[in-house]
């Protein structure tokens, strides 16, 4: 794969015209029950990109270069988290484009949608302690070669909010071994300073996995919320900004 990706990129002006004339356009899908779509759009703007609102019933991606599936409770989390969103018209197009290399980031409910869509392996299940958890969470960046993590260093630790009731990542042992062997574990839960190691994992996720990527590295899903950590006024840190600057750097490169 080359630096620019996807069919949207190939139809757009190339090289200098793109960097000079146009910001990277990143779409954010709103499903019924999405909560964090506005924060995701805001994070994209703060990172220097052009956020584009996408609607779940609209198959058209409006020439975006990348897509964020935001957090929330799409379709009320009915059936299973993300199970109904997977069949929405917009997802049909996103699945096609993702397979052609378009960067896609799924945050929280978005991660659940990506797993239900089979763009990422495994599934998210009820937190092992059954409680909804909301806290600032420390993560270790395990893979800084994905479309969404190039602005981090491998091994870097970041702190972003985490808030979910069904964030336990599960997959069979063979899949987990393959993810590890192929370097597709992107983020792992880790203990912050002064926190006992056994409290690092907030939800019983297998092997402390907080986020993973597909084989090509363009699709990334994670449970914690980088879009809530882009401004010092409202976030615990600005550690989440790197997700969006990483994708934008790649889009306008």
């Amino acid at each position: 794969m080359t630096g620019t990706t996807g069919t949207a990129a190939t139809s757009a002006p190339t090289g200098p015209a793109r960097t000079a004339g146009r910001l990277g356009r990143i779409g954010v899908v709103t499903f019924p029950g999405s909560l964090d779509d506005r924060d995701a759009r805001r994070a994209i703007r703060i990172a220097g990109g052009e956020p584009v609102a996408l609607w779940h019933r609209d198959k058209d991606l409006h020439q975006v270069d990348a897509v964020v599936l935001p957090g929330g409770f799409s379709y009320g989390d009915y059936l299973r988290c993300g199970a109904i969103a997977r069949f929405s018209p917009v997802m049909q197009t996103i699945v096609e484009q993702a397979k052609q290399g378009m960067p896609v980031l799924g945050i929280c409910n978005g991660f659940q949608v990506l797993c239900e869509s089979h763009l990422l392996p495994g599934a998210l299940t009820r937190n092992d302690h059954l409680r909804f958890i909301c806290r600032d969470q420390r993560l270790r960046v395990e893979n800084n070669r994905t479309a969404w993590t190039t602005d981090y260093t491998e091994g870097q630790e970041i702190t972003v909010p985490l808030k979910n009731g069904e964030g336990g990542y599960v997959a069979d042992e063979r899949t987990l071994d393959a993810l590890e062997a192929e370097g597709r574990v992107v983020f792992r839960y880790t203990a912050g300073p002064g926190t006992p190691e056994e409290q690092a994992n907030p939800n019983g996720s297998r092997r402390d996995i907080a986020g993973i990527t597909n084989e090509a590295g363009n699709v990334v899903g994670l449970m914690p919320h980088p879009e809530h950590a882009v401004e010092s006024l409202t976030g615990p840190t600005t550690d989440g900004l790197g997700f969006f600057t990483s994708a934008l750097a790649r889009l306008v490169a």
Partner: peptide, 13 residues
């Protein structure tokens, strides 16, 4: 049903 090897915290509760 959840597969036997998948933890069922609701059932446990």
């Amino acid at each position: 049903m959840l597969k036997p090897e998948i933890l069922d915290p609701q059932g446990q509760a």
